[in-house]
Design a protein around this nucleic acid. Structure first.
Lengths: 218, 218
DNA sequence: CCATCTTTGTGCACGCGTTCACAAAGACAT
DNA sequence: ATGTCTTTGTGAACGCGTGCACAAAGATGG
């Protein structure tokens, strides 16, 4: 039986082994003392807990460059997602296949949602259309929305929204870049490093920031 | 002189006013007691601190659907970013304009970086090419990388990498969706809610998660 | 069957960020 | 000029996640 110890996993993932064991313990922890965790069983448990064993039909609304990129993105299928439909407001797009899936017109949005039992929607429309699309998705029964449009969406209680702002990630990089430049200048004895307290707060690891600033200008 | 109080800003942003004031205090205190913050000056200070007043030339490598979407994305310009060049490995793409910018071939990558003084690179290539592109970018002088390819990049000390995995956001939504379904079932008296402890830890607000799980299967 | 060794599961303490609460500061009216 | 009122800036307390350290559990060998 192939097994892994928390120590091995922690080293591979670059995290603390105690944290990892404690996280696993929340799932009901099925490790064997003196041996470790049964790999196959562990993968199954985590997959089940994260919802990877289910099939999640999703619709993508707004088939521009970004929508097309998402439709073509291979990572979805392996994570339990299935692109059930592509929807666009442009009649010229209707019927045209993108990533092997024919684009359908916004008029049929409600029917498509209900026919496919879709509960997760992706909005890749221009900012101006996002709220309207969102309202229709929610009215049709969607309860989770991934929003790529640069707008904060208003949704009723019980609906989850996650906003992905592609430029925020770049902005964080630029902030660190500026800090690097500032520190070089300070090392040259030229200037005191501006905002050193705020700079210290920024973490340096890959991935989304844990502590985002409270306010950011539009 | 138009002003805002920390209370107003906090209400608008949905955060605690004390935290907001403390954050501002790290930038140096520019508020007036009894009045609030001078809007114009505050915007300028924050913009400067975040690096929005500078012009950041960036290159996008890999002009597929995603790369094209990024090139067309309007949000960059208003945040101080300028797309200095588009680079792709496909010779057929060379010279073809995307978002009004002619695509250049990977062979010229080093020259393009140096000619434009680029320090921020965006990787939108397939996973297989990402590390190689990354190495060349770093060797040419890039010190910040935004990675859309589903790979963890290896970079030397001093280089920042931020990884954007589009399917992780969907996965988080699916997790919440599953939790909703599980709670309904539990309310019906059918099943105990699986993983309730882990579920409780998940926050419900828009935006990237602060506390990401330590390990996630590939 | 017992001793030893490995690894889990977790109580506890530490550190950090958030929130509370209030004194100090400044505007504004009288 | 003086008092009142608003809002800032911040010291202190609180809460929470993380890491340490160790006892309990089980495997393994003699």
């Amino acid at each position: 039986m192939p097994t892994v110890s928390s120590e091995e996993l922690a080293a591979a993932a670059g995290v603390n082994s105690a944290k990892l064991r404690k996280d696993f313990s929340y799932l009901g922890s099925y490790g064997t003392r003196g041996v470790g965790y049964d790999v196959e069983y562990l993968v199954y448990q985590i997959s089940r807990e994260l919802g990877l064993t289910q099939d999640w039909p999703v619709v993508i609304v707004g088939i521009g460059n970004l929508g097309a990129a998402l439709a073509n993105y291979g990572g979805f299928a392996s994570r339990g997602f299935r692109v059930a439909a592509l929807i666009d407001a442009d009649p010229a797009m209707a019927g045209k296949p993108v990533a092997g899936i024919p684009v359908q017109h916004t008029d049929d949005l409600e029917r498509i949602i209900q026919d496919n039992g879709v509960s997760i929607g992706v909005i890749a429309t221009p900012a101006g259309a996002a709220q309207q699309v969102c309202d229709r998705l929610v009215a049709a029964g969607v309860t989770s929305i991934l929003n790529f449009a640069p707008t904060v969406l208003n949704v009723p209680e019980g609906v989850d929204v996650r906003k992905v702002d592609l430029s925020i990630e770049l902005q964080i990089l630029a902030f660190h870049e500026q800090r690097k430049a500032g520190e070089e200048a300070a090392a040259d004895g030229a200037l005191p490093a501006a905002g050193s307290a705020a700079a210290r707060k920024a973490s340096a690891d890959q991935g989304p920031d844990g502590a985002a600033p409270a306010v950011m200008p539009a």
